[in-house]
Nucleic acid binder design. Structure first.
Lengths: 159, 159
DNA sequence: GGATTTCCTACCTGATTGATAGGGTATAAC
DNA sequence: GTTATACCCTATCAATCAGGTAGGAAATCC
């Protein structure tokens, strides 16, 4: 049970926006794709999911780009994960996708239901801001590095 | 992010054993496969994972079968899930499977790490016994039905 | 020895993941 | 208005994985 690159890349995109709020109003997809070593065309599709969920403010046209629709402290990981994954449920029956012969009298239902709640309860407590703050705290630097890092190898798979 | 049938079927197998402890010492794979509407050959592979983890006592040969290696109250969902999934980690870097360019300075590491812990903390609190007991309580019957249910359609996907 | 049941390995098929590609549409700068 | 830049949408595709099938070897009971 692993989360897909869709969710991992989408989260990284949001973190990128959160960490560059002192910069220009809108951040271009191209910039994020390059600095995060993600295919721009692929990131495009992922970002669309976030936009549909209302997490992003968009400016089209030249010099346009994306920004967070709300303050980072008002965006929870729960919301982000649901936007990207569709739901948090670890089995289909919890979001009504599958008709299971055991539905309604399933011996294992409770553990799946409880697991979803446990994940939800954890993720709702983490905001985009708290995630970024914790990272900055651990890495003992208060601002983003002025000099962007050298481009990474595209072949390396990133979280 | 959905759990595979491997984990779902494996869990159901263990629940089946836990609910039939008043029966014969060893339960045949064939019986479980039929009553749970799972392909016997497929269940075979899944059960092997549980055996390797030491969760099952096995008797080979004629009249052989499987039984729980320990009392149901001593088997946690955490242990079961790890046996079947390999680990609880939602991303590869947490169990060292992927070398990620961001490892060691990853902005999103904390939420993945925290999510794994949240799942682990929940699952370790649920034992095979507590899961079964909760089911029996909700279904208001203290023993397993004497008459086995009619075989279900194989085509229906079960949790 | 024969019947039964677990153990092991290989194989197959369809769905999903992780992209890539190409064009269409909207907007801002000039 | 032109052009450049950026977002938007659909189709395609290779690789991987999920889910399941198949055949036989090894162990055990009678």
């Amino acid at each position: 049970m692993k989360f897909s690159t869709r969710t991992r890349y989408g989260l990284r995109f949001l973190v990128f926006l959160a960490m560059h709020r002192n910069g220009p109003d809108f951040i271009q997809l191209k910039q994020v794709a390059e600095e995060e070593s993600i295919s721009m065309k692929y990131l495009e599709q992922i970002v669309r999911l976030l936009k549909r969920s209302g997490l992003l403010a968009v400016s089209r046209g030249a010099y346009g780009g994306y920004a967070l629709a709300r303050a980072p402290e008002d965006i929870t990981m729960r919301e982000v994960f649901i936007s990207l994954e569709g739901s948090l449920s670890p089995v289909g029956c919890l979001d009504g996708k599958l008709t299971c012969a055991k539905f309604g009298h399933c011996e294992t239902f409770e553990v799946w239901h409880g697991l979803e709640n446990a994940m939800s309860d954890y993720l709702v407590k983490i905001s985009l801001k708290s995630l970024v703050d914790e990272y900055l705290e651990k890495n003992k630097k208060k601002t983003v590095a002025a000099i962007p890092p050298a481009p990474m190898e595209r072949s390396v798979i990133n979280v």
